[in-house]
Amino acid sequence: MSVVQLFNGLVTGSFYALVALGLSIIFGMMRVVNFAHGAFYMLGAFGAYVLLDSWQIGFWWALILAPLAIGCFGMVLERLLFRRLYALDPLYNFLLSFAVATIIQDAMRLRYGAQGKPYRVTSQLLSGVQHIGSTFYPKYRLFVIVFSILVCVVVWFLVERTRIGMVIRAATEKPDLTRALGVDVDRWITPVFGFGVALAALGGVLAAAMQQVRPSMGEDLIIVIFAVVVIGGLGSIAGSVVAGLAIGVIAAVGEAYYAQVSSTLVFIVMAIVLLIRPAGLFGSVEGA
């Protein structure tokens, strides 16, 4: 196995990290196991496609505009739908998010077809391949690694070092106490949801250049992302990022040696981690 395979693992891993990060934040704040996260990821990719196809807006702007738009859409959904079920068992919001995912995915299929649409990064800077040792590696993929890690660091900074982040962390860990201390937690719910959705959409924009933009692209991803989040520890930001990258690399190694098992590998890892560390790698063991 060459070193380049490791890069591949990092690319996959940085996607997992980005999308899992959003899912983890939403779960931490709202206790919503958001099944629609995969659909938002897919919408991000379609966002990039539509921007280029309809308005000739290229990749760099799409990187900002698409997550922004999808994030706003997520906030609308939160206000209209998810908000209604917070008081109930999380199961209900899980089912609701499943319904939302199904509708979004199908609407995109009706509009763009099951086969989807191609997307190409127009920037000269990112096209072509880079020589690494005796092999070649696409420049774009190297960019994806660097960019995603950068985003993860920024998010970590926001959550750990700013006032908003402090509120989020407090609300995630001890919602009752936070409220009792006079912090208006509810005010932050919608923006935080939107932010989590935007992260998924950002993952989608990055994926658009590497995969066909198609309605089902988030469907099988979401279940892996669930596993990543659980391995990292629910609600843990560092956990999502580390687990995402680790799973990406493990899957790549798996593909190199025993390809059949690579898609099952993440679940094997999850079973082992949970049996040893009940709350995931970075989760705090509290309660029962």
Binding site: R31, D89, A288
Partner: peptide
């Protein structure tokens, strides 16, 4: 609101995802 999230006793048992086993 969220903090007071308690299910209606006549509905379902709350599955407790926040607890880590």
């Amino acid at each position: 609101g969220l903090a007071a999230a308690r299910p209606d006793p006549t509905t379902v048992p709350r599955v407790k995802p926040e607890k880590g086993g």
